[in-house]
Structures are given as structure tokens and as C-alpha cells.
Design a protein around this nucleic acid. Sequence first.
DNA 1: AAATATTAAACAAACGTTTGATTAATTCAA
DNA 2: TTGAATTAATCAAACGTTTGTTTAATATTT
Lengths: 206, 206
Amino acid sequence: MAVDKREHIMEHAISLFADKGFEGTSIRDLAQVAGVNVAMVNYYFGSKEKLVEAILEKKSSYMKDRIEELEANTNLSELDKIDALIEDYVNRILNGASFHKFLYKELMDTKRDVIHTFLNNSFARNTRNFSAIIQKGIDKKVFREVDPILTVTSIIGSISQVVVSKSMCNQLLLKPEGNEPYADEAFKQRLITHIKSMIHAHLLVK
Amino acid sequence: MAVDKREHIMEHAISLFADKGFEGTSIRDLAQVAGVNVAMVNYYFGSKEKLVEAILEKKSSYMKDRIEELEANTNLSELDKIDALIEDYVNRILNGASFHKFLYKELMDTKRDVIHTFLNNSFARNTRNFSAIIQKGIDKKVFREVDPILTVTSIIGSISQVVVSKSMCNQLLLKPEGNEPYADEAFKQRLITHIKSMIHAHLLVK
DNA sequence: AAATATTAAACAAACGTTTGATTAATTCAA
DNA sequence: TTGAATTAATCAAACGTTTGTTTAATATTT
């Protein structure tokens, strides 16, 4: 049961950190929500900060492998690779919306330096690797001479913007408060379609 | 000196809240950085939370007025209005990068309910008003039948993504740590050019 | 002199963490 | 397979700090 309980605590921590922030979530809050004793967090993870590191270690190879795999793939066209990445990003980010929100908060936060640096490097490397695919398409003269880094920034930014606030999202979709937009397959598809359409026009059109 | 000191405290608060978060910034931190006594924050603002409300009240008509003004304007084409808004957003957000980061964190955070609700409504309303301009362009058959809400989401998301982390931004621009990318006029222009180019292709091309 | 601004000190509450006792699970010789 | 020995897990209580805030005295302005 030991491993299960660790993950049980981590899942609740992700959701609380996403909504209330790291400092905004007390270990007593977390313990209560997760249904464990206050001492358990320090027992299993050593400290509140190490809990964050454990969460990142567990969850954070994230898109890295997928991007590098696609970058190396020689069968797919650059446009196919970008389409695949758009789909993957939307699915990964929307399915793990709380985790992504939590990542984002930590990325913005300079307080926990090791974590801040780690996340900055991860995000920057993923963006760079992704943009290398676009650059290859430009070199092959399949794509227009767009700004590869900022194009990737727009893709990630489009998805992240959606995930920043559930209630803003519901307002924009004209859904009632309490709706779960990120779990809605139709919305996921709508977002994928929009981003693909925008990026295709951006990359391909004269 | 009273008003000046109030604003002096607010400016330092914005920058600290942006980097360390609301709960991550103690009043003692703030007082020291701002060079005032700990009691001054409560003396001038009443509480730490009311300090946030004062900051929002001061700074947060933000883009609302500009969007509504442009929406009502009958001289400009829809495309001109969108271009104007892209420029305004980039300039406003990058010039007030700390403030925007702080806004974003509060938008993501559900802990302070009044503020969370207020910001959600503001962001949603701005997005809706902005998208109404796009909708009008679609109705006039000047624009393609794009997704207006998600198109605005992409514009705002593209800019926000840049502002989320200064060190990620510097890494991507191949600038040394410590560089101030948001103050760089050339980068601002590069971002404006990219977004305009992407959105134009998205809106206009068959 | 009255009102406003500033201060150091003190407040209770909440914080992350540790403790020492208790229970549950596992190990392993008989 | 049993039952003592060892380890792991859980708990309530307490620890020392830090937190936001208040106080009461002092300084400055008006």
C-alpha cells in the first residue's frame, strides 16, 4: 500500500497546488483532503518542497520524449509531425489540466530555485526541439519563413490559455459554472481543429 | 506624500507577488523591499488582501476601454482593429510584465474568491468583446469562418506565454540570464510581427 | 493643538516539521 | 504454522518559527 498512498497524496497535492498554489496549500489542508495524517507527507516525502520534486520527477518527462521521437522520425512530413504534436499537446494538457496549471505556477515562481530552473530548462528545451521541426520545414521550403520559436510559443500559449482558468473557460463556452470543459471531447476536438487550422494557414500560405 | 507612498508600496507588491506569489510574499518581505515599516501596509490598505484589491482597482480597467472603443469605431476595418489590439496587447503586457504575471497567478488561483471571480469576469468579457470584432469580420465575409473565441485565446495566449518566465524567454532568444527581454523594443516588434502574420493568414486566406 | 504618519514591540493564529507512542505488517527461527 | 522479533505505518500532540495584524508610543504635518 505504500506506493499507492504516495501517489494518492501526490494526486491531491497536484490539484490543491494548482488551485491554491504551493504556499497557499497547507500540509494540514492536503492531509485532510487526502484523508491522511499530517505527519504522512513528511514521512513519505521528507518535506513539502520535496513533495513537489517527487511530483515533477514522476510526471515530467512529459512531452520531451514525444517531441524527440517525432524529430527523429523520417517517415512523416514536417506538417504531419506538427499536427501530431498539436494533438498530443492538447490531449496531454487538457487531460492533466491541474498538473499543467501547477507546472505553470511553478514556472512563473522564482521562489523554489531548483524547481524554477528545472522547469525553465524543460520548457525551453521542448520549445526549441519543437521549433527545430518547423525550421526543417522552412529549410525544405515547404513552410513559409515564419518565426519558429514564436510559432511554437503560440501553439503552447493557445492551449495553456485555455487551461488557466476553468471558470473563464466555461464563461467563454457559455457553459454553466461547475462544468468540466477539459474533459469534454468535443471541446478538445474544437481546440485541435482551431490550432491546426491557424498553424496550417500560418505555415503554408503564400 | 501619502498617495506616493501608497503607490510605492503597490509597485513593489506587484513585482514581489509576480515572482513569489501572494502567499509566498510576506508583509515583512514587502516592507523591507519597499523600505517602509511593516505596519504601513495595514495602515494604508487595511489588510494584505485589500492591497491586492487596491492594485487591481488602480490598474485593471486595463484593455477593457480600448477594446470597447475600437468595437464602436466605424472608421476602421475589422482587420485594422485587430492589428491595433495586437499592438496594444503586446505593448501593455510586455511593459507591465510583472503586473500581468501577477494577474495571471490570481486568475489561476481560487483562494481569494472575490478577486478570482472579478478577474475571470474581466478576462472573459475582454475575450468576448475582442471576438465580437472578429465575428463582425466573418459576418461581412471579410474573414474566413474561424473560431472567434479561440482565435482571441491564441492571441492573448501567445503574448502571455512569453511573459510567463523571463529566464525561459531569455533562453529561447539566446540572451544571457539577467537580460530584460520585455523592455527590448526589437523583441516587442518581433512578437507583434509574428502574431499579426499568423492571425492575418488565419483570418484572410482561402 | 489636532490630525496624520511612523515606529518597535507584541499578539494570536497558522505554519512546516518533529517527536514518541501505538498499531499494523513483515520476517523468520523453531 | 506458530509466535516472538523487527520493521513500517500511523497517530495525536507538541515544537519553534513565521505569519498577518494590532497596539500604544512617538514623530511629523497641517
